[in-house]
Amino acid sequence: MMHDRPLEDIDPTFVFDFEALDEPDDDNQRWSTWLSVEPLCRGPEPRPDWVVTSQAAIDTELGILKTGKEAEVFLLERAVPGSTLRGESVVMAAKRYKSREHTAFHRSGAYTEGWSTKRSRDARAVKAKSTFGREVAAGQWASSEWTALTRFWAAGVPVPYPVQIDGTEILMEFISVDGEPAPRLAQTRPDGDLLGHLFEQLRSAMGALARDGVAHGDLSPYNILLADERLVIIDLPQAVDLAGNAQGMDFLLRDCTNVCAWFRRRGLEVDEHELFGELMAQAF
């Protein structure tokens, strides 16, 4: 039986505002996938305050940032419609590993030494490089980069904050300068005190990796971003276990050689063998 009661008699703690939201009406839009992924597929805590977790948020693809043989990086806005508040609107980088078109990294067998695939069917498919095998491999590379990002972020290494992984797509912090993509170190011409400051940042970052038992494996000025005066290391799917990979030391020395050669060309006297020795001492 229904009883009529004046609205003013209703306890305000039981009153809430309701707003109906329209479905995304653009081919480049979708509802936020934040809550559709498993908790372990979300970034480590404490999370930055710009991470959008609202169920009302919509993901809008803004365009492509970078394309390559193995993956493409898009700009993606996650925002609550009509809101510009921090924590309700952000632009991120969406890295999507290719599946059917995926081609393995050069010398990928050396990078993946020590990896294991639990399902024998998957392992056979990857080895045979079948269509299904390439899809499995794409998932492995995405998972490897996600693991590296979360591990290194927690260790204090300057990497983009990993927001979430969903299959072969990783959403991560968009590293920018005044709203534009931060340049690669190779595109910049720092000199004087800044050059030395940047090398010390890189030495510290490589030391943190070494203490964690890994090397980047493909470090060069092309996968280091310069955001104002801050270095950020990117492209981490091939991170190498120094103890578990027989070629781990070779990869570490190559990383040292690549970065030291660039700094020397800019006028800073640094030695890759000295850096390698320092990192080895921290690793073991």
Rank of each mutant, 00 (worst) to 15 (best):
V15Q: 11
F16S: 10
F16R: 12
D17R: 12
D17A: 10
E19Q: 11
A20T: 14
L21M: 14
L21I: 09
P24M: 02
D26H: 14
D26A: 14
D26P: 07
W31C: 08
V37D: 00
V37I: 10
E38P: 05
L40N: 10
C41P: 01
G43T: 02
P44A: 01
E45N: 10
W50H: 04
W50V: 07
W50E: 08
V51R: 06
T53Y: 01
A57G: 04
D59P: 00
E61T: 11
E61Y: 06
I64V: 11
K69D: 11
E72A: 11
F74Y: 12
F74H: 13
A79M: 03
A79T: 05
V80A: 01
S83T: 06
T84H: 13
G87S: 01
E88H: 10
M92D: 05
R96Y: 11
Y97I: 03
S99A: 12
T103Q: 14
T103K: 11
R107S: 14
S108H: 15
G109S: 10
T112V: 13
E113C: 06
G114M: 07
R119G: 00
S120R: 13
R121M: 14
R121D: 15
K127R: 15
K127S: 11
A128C: 06
S130K: 09
S130H: 11
A137D: 09
A137Y: 08
A138Y: 03
A138W: 05
Q140C: 10
W141V: 12
W141Y: 12
A142Q: 02
E145G: 01
E145P: 00
A148D: 03
F152G: 01
V159K: 04
V159Q: 00
P160H: 04
Y161H: 04
V163L: 06
E169M: 09
E169N: 12
I170K: 03
E173V: 00
S176M: 11
E180N: 09
P181L: 00
P183E: 12
D191N: 13
L194I: 13
G196D: 09
H197Q: 15
M206E: 08
A208V: 06
D218Y: 04
Y222L: 13
N223S: 07
L226W: 02
V232P: 02
V232S: 09
L236A: 07
L236N: 05
D241A: 09
A243D: 14
G244L: 10
Q247R: 13
G248M: 01
D250V: 15
L253T: 05
D255I: 02
D255H: 00
N258E: 12
C260T: 13
A261L: 14
R266W: 04
R266T: 05
G267E: 02
L268K: 00
L268R: 04
H273C: 08
H273W: 12
L279Y: 01
L279R: 04
M280P: 01
A281G: 07
A283L: 05
A283I: 05
